Amino acid sequence: MNTKQIFIFLFALSVLSCKNETASKNERVQVVTTTSMITDLVKNVGGDLIDVQGLMGAGVDPHLYKASAGDVTKLANADIIFYNGLHLEGKLVEVFEKMESATKTQVALGEQLDATTLIGSDYFASNYDPHVWFNIQYFKEFVEVVVSTLSRKLPQHADQFKANGDAYIAQLTTLEKEVEEIIETLPEEKRILVTAHDAFNYFGKSYGFNVVGLQGLSTATEAGVKDVQRLSQFIIDNDVKAIFVESSVPRRTIEALQAAVKAKDRDVIIGGSLYSDALGDAGTIEGTYIGMFRYNVNTIVNSLK
């Protein structure tokens, strides 16, 4: 065997070795998720039976998110893609469409819900408010869809996915009861939630809050001077004690609103920062859906009392 033949053999051997190593690493189902809320849910259901890669981390605004080259690679290599849908990830829709194939499963969780129960919206092509995770019952339905999808992909582990899903739903039921008890301590006339954008309408519908967002449903729209003046007067007229910034939206719009109220010789405090379109930092309590929801409710209620 001459030198050239040896080189070709070694090269082929190395390629085969790499392929075998890749196959070994990829025995588990490769799942890609978009928002951090969905990432947390899928990890709770899939456990160590799947590999999950989330595209959006803490503080990331899904309305404005654009896929990087690395994201496209992750999506291309995925067996399953779970995303919110209802045009929340508007700038990723075209990427998802190009990724469609017979071997890849794509699930828009929000689009599995009963559309007749959703809140209408003129801001999105779907004509529905996409912030559906703020209805815990909807999030439970997401769990069922994820369990079903993973079970079809890995039928040998269907019982484990079902057990994981049931356990997580039990935690969500406990969260529901806790949230209701906390909110009951806030008088109904004080349940006015003013935030940077209208991410909390499903929350408001569930718990009797009048929700007003400065930017509307999408952060892609800018709040104008008239919006600030209109809302500042609303705050004064309704004696609103606190307004809220959001972790995924710049503070400046709410700070401008606070200044507008002050210019009219009234005061309103910034009650804290709420998690709206993304969870908190990974590894923190607020980095989980349940921790985020509990934190938001306590922050809102304590500030508005």
Rank of each mutant, 00 (worst) to 15 (best):
I270F: 01
Q171C: 11
K153I: 07
K177M: 15
A260N: 05
N127F: 00
N201K: 06
V245D: 01
I269K: 11
E100S: 09
I254M: 07
S151G: 05
P250I: 05
L150H: 04
I38R: 00
V93P: 05
D166K: 08
P130L: 00
V45D: 04
R251N: 11
G165C: 11
I269C: 10
D51K: 10
R230Y: 06
I183A: 05
R252C: 15
D40F: 04
F7C: 09
D122G: 05
N238A: 14
T35P: 00
E184T: 11
S17D: 13
G46L: 04
F209C: 02
A278S: 01
I38H: 00
V15G: 15
N84V: 03
L118V: 00
E180I: 13
A167Q: 08
F200G: 01
I183Y: 04
I81Q: 05
T174P: 10
N302L: 13
G46I: 02
V145I: 10
T39L: 02
E111D: 14
L193P: 04
T34C: 15
D198Y: 04
P155A: 09
Q30F: 05
L86Q: 03
W133N: 00
V93I: 12
Q229T: 06
H87W: 13
I182E: 10
C18N: 08
N298H: 09
G46S: 08
A220I: 03
E27L: 10
K4T: 15
E178S: 15
T3K: 13
L64E: 09
T149F: 02
T39D: 03
Y138A: 07
E178C: 13
K25W: 09
L10C: 15
